[in-house]
Amino acid sequence: MDIVRIQDVPIDVNEGIAAIIDERAGGEAIFLGTVRNVFEGRASRGLFYEAYRDLAEKEMKRIEEELKREFDVLHVVMVHRIGELALGEIAVMVAVSAAHRHQAIRACEAGIDRIKSRVPIWKKERWADGKTAWHDDPEAGAGQMR
């Protein structure tokens, strides 16, 4: 089965694996994006994510259809979490299954790349010193952040 969802509760990796398992598949690829303790050389204590949920889920659904068409994958899972995330928590999961490993790995990479470039979701860095800044805010002194 396929899952495309924005959610504010922790991501369950096992749910993603269960969704993509298929007897026709010979390979499954899973990408997890997690919250890192440093960004651009500065210590961070977490991230806040927000989404324009209606359009974000619509755009993720389009990406799912592209992956199926372009990479011949069997199942696609794309789940993005929003809200406050602590270091080490999973912000995004992309999981796909295909007949062969190359299809699965390429589709998984394309999936996360397209989410990052097209889906209306934004992250705010919560710096260890207590300050915060939206990524790509031209006035945050970190316009190159990405």
Binding site: G33, Y49, A51, Y52, L55, A56, H80, A91, V92, I112, I115, K116, S117, R118, V119, P120, I121, W122, K123, W134, H135, D136, D137, M145, R146
Partner: peptide, 10 residues
């Protein structure tokens, strides 16, 4: 209408 800044999900 939505005003959508450069996205930064993932």
């Amino acid at each position: 209408v939505a005003v959508i800044p450069p996205v930064s999900g993932g």
